[in-house]
Design a protein around this nucleic acid. Structure first.
Length: 470
RNA sequence: UCCUCUGUAGCUCAGCGGUAGAGCGGGUGGCUGUUAACCACUAGGUCGUUGGUUCGAACCCAACCGGAGGAGCCA
């Protein structure tokens, strides 16, 4: 037996110490003796025994422990247990006599590891999302947030698996950057301090102004022009003063970059990736998704199934404008060629007209950044946005301008100083190739997969304007 | 940055000019193979802050502070 292949972390832990509740509940036969450790979700006492609901975060379900009043230490270790306390239970797993669960633990010993004081804020009943955000250090102990962060972990793994299976190389693009403008929004400045004094100018740590990255794309392109297919997956930062449920100042982004690739293949990849991730969530996180479907977003699972099974729609920006203008719909903002699609327009396309994820491509040149490839019509660029119902834009990508002269002209048109991008221009001077890529907002993917409506509730410790708690 | 809504017990909320309420959670006791358990008792609040109107303000008005939703920008 190959120890690496056949012994995951879970079974190593199993041998050494506790059994995760996830494994316990999957058992198909009773177990004579087992060690369970976790946190008390609720306890119901009677004269002769107590029922303790234990959760260890390994899955959504709790494990019911029956502790007889005759147990050694019952008065010290069982009676004082309140919601939130941590405990260690040795016992035997037997078929439950009650309804509601297949297995339960008949405790042989119970040890309270840490009591929870009486003001433990999490209860069994409904809390508002706003309150839970204010206790971000404790909210992972709730059903909802436990589920969200298990799905987050799985989706991160699944993203790596997708790209690795496709032969992509994972590249760590820098988090601190000195490119003074990447065209993707307001940036956070990186400075050093001496007490209160901020060091600028000659004292600047890097010798010039530096910032937190807003995108790893440009650096990613340099690696694609060497390793062919690469992806990045890391944190990005935007200092935009946005107050919406879809924006955070710190968020994670996945940015593949593919050499020898055009926009059409780029769109194929984005759609295949979405389907792969949704299919994996449905397969690997079904218990958690079922919980979201029931309590957060009714219809979530059938919507995800249709994303997995049905093909996406694809329309050019020009066609999309025609569809919107012909819709007879009363929009707050008029639909006009040459303007960005508004949220309401995107919603109409994905939620009413097509009722499925939709990729819009070939946008007018004027509303897109300098690095996007100019199409033969001279008016549009090879850009694409993948829009999904309920969220809007989840993926934004393009074929990059690989022609040196056209790129230079575009940079001039955007008032960019070529000297700041000499390394980027070099890619077009030495063995330039057609290439394309896109960015996927990881939190937006999670909102889509979980049905959670606010980006602050799919990232462990959200950073938004005016708020960087914890 | 703009527009809208909101702030009462630890939590979720009711009260909307006349002596601060409920449910949950906490504590105490009881009862039951219980499972958002149940029953009884109990503790817990300068009604976001400041100012104003009024005989009287949680309630009406203003400003400020916090929270949320939407727009723009984007991922």
């Amino acid at each position: 037996m190959n120890p690496v292949e056949n012994r995951g972390v879970v079974s190593i832990l199993h041998d050494m110490m506790r059994t995760p509740i996830r494994e316990v509940l999957q058992s198909d036969s009773p177990v004579p003796e087992i060690l369970i450790e976790g946190w008390v979700r609720t306890k119901r006492d009677s004269k002769a025994f107590s029922f303790i609901e234990v959760n260890d975060g390994s899955c959504l379900s709790n494990l019911q422990v029956v502790a007889d009043a005759t147990l050694d230490g019952y008065a010290e270790s069982v009676l004082p247990l309140t919601t939130g306390a941590s405990i260690s239970i040795r016992g035997k797993m037997v078929e439950s006599q009650g309804k509601g669960q297949k297995w339960e633990i008949q405790a042989l010993s119970v040890e309270m590891l840490g009591a929870a004081e009486g003001d433990f804020p999490l209860q069994k009943k409904g809390h508002s999302m706003e309150f839970l955000r204010s206790i971000a250090h404790l909210r992972p102990r709730s059903n909802l947030f436990g589920a969200v962060f298990r799905v987050r972990s799985r989706m991160a793994y699944s993203i790596h698996r997708f790209f690795q299976e496709q032969g992509f190389v994972y590249v760590h693009t820098p988090i601190i950057t000195a490119s003074d403008c990447e065209g993707a929004g307001e940036m956070f400045r990186v400075v050093t301090t001496d007490g209160e004094e901020i060091r600028l100018g000659d004292e600047e740590f890097f010798g010039k102004p530096s910032y937190l990255t807003v995108s790893g794309q440009l650096e990613g392109e340099t690696f694609a022009c060497a390793l062919s297919n690469i992806y990045t997956f890391g944190p990005t930062f935007r200092a935009e003063n946005s107050h919406t449920s879809r924006h955070a100042s710190e968020f994670w982004m996945i940015e593949p970059e593919i050499a020898f690739c055009d926009l059409s293949a780029d769109m194929d990849l984005a759609e295949a990736m979405m389907k792969y991730l949704v299919a994996d969530a449905l397969e690997s996180c079904l218990e958690d998704l079922t919980f979201f479907d029931k309590f957060i977003d009714k219809g979530l699972i059938s919507r995800l199934e249709s994303v997995r099974d049905r093909s996406f729609e694809r329309v050019s920006y020009t066609e999309a404008v025609k569809i919107l203008q012909a819709s007879g719909e009363k929009f707050e903002y008029p639909v006009e060629y040459g303007h960005n699609l508004q949220s309401e327009h995107e919603r109409y396309l994905t939620e009413t007209h097509f009722n499925c994820p939709t990729t819009v491509f070939d946008y007018p040149k004027e509303i897109k950044p300098f690095y996007m490839r100019t199409n033969d019509d001279g008016k549009t660029v090879a850009a694409m946005d993948l829009l999904v119902p309920g969220i809007g834009e989840i993926v934004g990508g393009s074929q990059r301008e690989e022609r040196l002269d056209v790129l230079r002209a575009n940079m001039a048109a955007h008032n960019l100083d070529e000297a700041d991008y000499s390394w980027y221009v070099d890619l077009r001077r030495y063995g330039s190739v057609p290439h394309a890529g896109f960015g996927l907002g990881f939190e937006r993917l999670l909102m889509f997969v979980t049905g959670v409506a606010n980006i602050r509730d799919v990232i462990p410790f959200p950073r938004t304007p005016g708020s960087a708690e914890f």
